[in-house]
Each structure stands twice: as C-alpha cells, then as structure tokens.
Design a protein around this nucleic acid. Structure first.
Lengths: 250, 250
DNA sequence: ATGTGTTACATGTTATAACAAAATTAGCGC
DNA sequence: GCGCTAATTTTGTTATAACATGTAACACAT
C-alpha cells in the first residue's frame, strides 16, 4: 500500500549464456528466481525514486518487513543494500532513513551528474542509431502528453527512459549504474519539493535539443545540452530548497 | 589469516552534528559501536583492495562466516553490501564472487576514474592548503622509500593516502565514495596481475608533477596530471591483461 | 569404460528467537 | 506544571534452524 511499485526499468547485469542442443536452440535460460531481499529492494527503490518518503523519514526494519509481509532478514538486506548504494543513510543508532537534502548535497550531486552523464553522452554519441532517435522521439511525445495530462508519475518514468536510452547506448554498464545511483539520490526529493508538479516540464525544449544532437551524433552538443538539462533541474531544486528553508517548512 | 586487514583509511560519512555546550565544544561524537556486519565488510574490503582474492573466486557465505568466526547473518550482510557497492558480483545462483576483469571493464573503469577524479581535482584545487602540500610531500617520501624497500603493500596504502588526501580537499563526500568504489573495483586485480610488483613505481614522477600542480593550485594541470596517472596505470594493467590472455593464464 | 540415476553434501534463503540498547511512556515527587 | 526516574515498548543485532536448490560423488547397468 505504502510502497507503491512503479516501473523504472532497471539496468540488468545478467547476460544470457548460450550453448544448447539443436532443437532447444531457441530456449532462453530460465529467469532466475528473485529472492525476497531483491524484491523488497526493488519495491523500496521505486518508492524512493517516486519520492514517496519524506527526507529524514525513518525506515525501520520491522515496518518494512510488515508492510511487505516478509521477515526481518530480507527487509534488513534490502535496506542496507540501498544504504551501500547511497540511496539511504544510517543514523548513528543504526536506523535507516531517507537522507536530508541540503543545498551542498544537491550541488555535489549535480556536479557529479554533469560529469557522469556527460561522459555517457560522449561515449554514446558515435553509437547512436536511427532506431534510438525514433525511440527518443516517441518517448518525448508521450512525455509531452503526460505533461499536458499532468500525470507526473508517468512523466518521471518517461523522463527516466528518455535519458537512460541514451546512456545505455554508451554500453558502459558500470557507468549506467552509477548514474542510476545519482538519480536515486535526487529522486527522493522530487515529490517532496513538488507535491503537485513535475520537475521536467520546463525541460521539454531541452529534450528537443537533445534529440537534435542525437540525430546529428554531435557528441559535444549532446553533452552540453544534457549538462544544461541537469543544471536547470538542479537550479530549480536549489531554489525550492531555499524557499522551503525560508518558509520554515519541516 | 586469509582475511588480512590492511588499513586503507576509509572515507567516513558520519558528519559530526554540532550544537553542544561551550566547554564541550571540542568533543567529537563518540565512535559508533561497529556492528559485526560492518567489521566483516571492512575486512573484506581491505582484502579485496589488497588483491588477496583471485578474480572469479567464490566467496561463500559460510566460508566468510567461518573465517571471521561470525554467524551467517553478518557475513551475508557484508558480502551483499559489497555487491551493492560494485566491489563484488553475484552469480546467477546467488553465490558472491570477485568480478573478472577484462579489457572492456578496465577501459570503462579508467574512463570513469578520469572523469570522477578529474572533477575532484578541479574542485579541490582552490581549497588546497600549504599543509596539504607538506602532507603530500611527506607521503610521497614514504612512498619512494616503500618502493625502494619493495614493500608493495605499504606502497599501495601510501598511494591511496596520497590521492585521497587531494580528493578529500574537494569536500565532496559522495564523490569521494564513488571514487573509492572505483579503486575497489580495480584493486582486486593488482596483486593478481602483479604478484611481485607494485603498480605505482612508474608513477612517482607523475606524483612529483601532481605535487607541483597542488603547490601552484593549478586546477587544469592538476586534473591533467591525475588523468595521466590514471591512464598510465590503466594502460599498464591493460597490457598485463593482454599478456595474461596470450599466455593463457587462468 | 561410459552414461545414468541416486544419494550425499554444500550452499543460498528465510523465518524465528533471544538479546541489548535506545526511545518512549508512565508514574511520582516537588 | 515541571523534572526526574523507572518501566515499557520499540528497534537493531545476531545466532540458529529449517528449507530448497544446486553440485558432486558414487554405484550400477549397459
């Protein structure tokens, strides 16, 4: 109930192993049974990404275990994995909580994002295919529709898909994962700062520019435009944080 | 015995919360009691960093638990936290193992490192103090001594301290942590590829250049020199991997 | 000797119980 | 009402047992 699972398609690391008999050639290796710990972690990941937790909110092991009807063991595993990933924090007494966002943290994450996503853009540029362009245009269409429909949940998912479609083209799985972690770190704050609005509605023009750069396979422009996108979102969030501080919201 | 703890000083994330009475101003928050899971994780981290595990080596939960004389719970927690951090991997059946290093992976990590550590260098540049310069010179002295004494364990620790002294100056804890993860990912291979040699002995000249740049607070030169350092190490490792592939070592 | 089926063992997964420490609440005296 | 103490509850930590699954070894039949 609380932990509503959205589908931010996660980059996977498991490759298919080949080598079967002739008639069974078309078989794919059976999908690995997901452990409870993994399932819990993905649920939490989606909830964090969707901003369903308040900054500073405590996530007690037992509460998570109860909410998802599992024992303490997988709940604890999931929480601490997210801590290790940087998405959550542990307080001195061991309690896991959603990290607070201050301006310093936001600035740091923004700088890291510009570097990491810039690198992904540069590396992806020479590998960008016409198929990807159509996919991006398609995603952007849906994104605009979602924006007009004020469906900000879908909007956020589509924004994710838009950006990671490019980053995946770089074929740098470790890099993708790091970028993902960065998104998780800021994802927590979107809904808090914008209970009613999305953060990317101003970014649609920038998305058009990104698509142009992808079409042209212009690495420099692509990187610059993505950096602009990140910076814009960062400035926006920073302003929100400042407002919040002035208003004394807590 | 197997899991020999070296001291790669870990960047910590627990900031001191201020707001004490005047006389107790100088007090530091009491050191958090380490949990078994944390201790196991740090032991494993040191062992990985020191390259004490072979690439592909399986780390079974029970073996770790037995070696450190703890139950399965903290051993499992430690292993999976390192997986979440990217230092270890899980096989399809859930077994945790040290990731294999191929050239693609090495190239990817090297690119990421150049970006991340370059960012840290740029950000650190304006904050570099004369005290840091002396510290770096001191560390480099010891490093040269360790190199001459062929004490490659000490050498690696000192190399770590040298680089992270600069990165810490950037005061970007999240960035430091990401860089740390990168070092962990390549650390595993150093001893395997160089059972008898260190990898930084050629880097001492570069270190001198780094110190020069730090003295001059020249952000561009610092970044470029660090990039050179990373690239040099990467090329060296890549060559080793190729040799190993030809020799068919496994 | 090879292939096959069965058994034994190793290993990951998860729930539970017991414990300790922290946080909260209740109670009491002033 | 305020402050302090004690009791209660909450919460994190860890060990253990039970279970499921995967792997290896072994015996047996062809």
């Amino acid at each position: 109930m609380i932990y509503d699972a959205n589908d931010f398609p996660r980059t996977t690391f498991r490759e298919a192993k080949t080598g079967m008999s002739s008639t069974l050639e078309s078989f794919r290796p059976v999908e690995r049974k997901e452990t409870l710990g993994t399932l819990v972690r993905e649920q939490l990941r989606s909830a964090i990404m969707a901003g369903q937790f308040m900054p500073g909110e405590k996530l007690t092991i037992r509460a998570v275990a109860k909410a998802l009807d599992v024992s303490l063991t997988p709940a604890r595993e999931a929480l601490f994995n997210l801590v290790a990933e940087g998405a959550l924090e542990t307080q001195p007494n061991g309690t896991v909580c959603v990290p607070e966002m201050d301006e310093n943290r936001l600035i740091e994450i923004t700088k890291i994002r510009i570097n990491l996503e810039g690198l992904a853009a540069r590396e992806a540029a020479p590998r960008l295919s016409p198929e990807l362009v159509t996919k991006l245009e398609d995603t952007n269409e849906k994104l605009i529709e979602a924006d007009e429909a004020r469906d900000y949940t879908a909007l956020r998912t589509l924004n994710w898909q838009f950006h990671f479609a490019i980053y995946e083209a770089a074929e740098m799985p470790l890099l993708s994962r790091m970028i993902e972690s960065c998104w998780l770190m800021i994802g927590s704050y979107l809904n808090v700062l914008y209970p009613d609005y999305g953060q990317v509605n101003v970014g649609i023009d920038i998305h058009r520019e990104i698509i142009k750069a992808v079409k042209a396979r212009d690495a420099e422009k692509l990187e610059a435009t993505i950096a602009l996108d990140i910076r814009t979102a960062g400035d926006w969030l920073a302003e929100m944080i400042r407002k919040r501080a002035v208003n004394g919201a807590d």
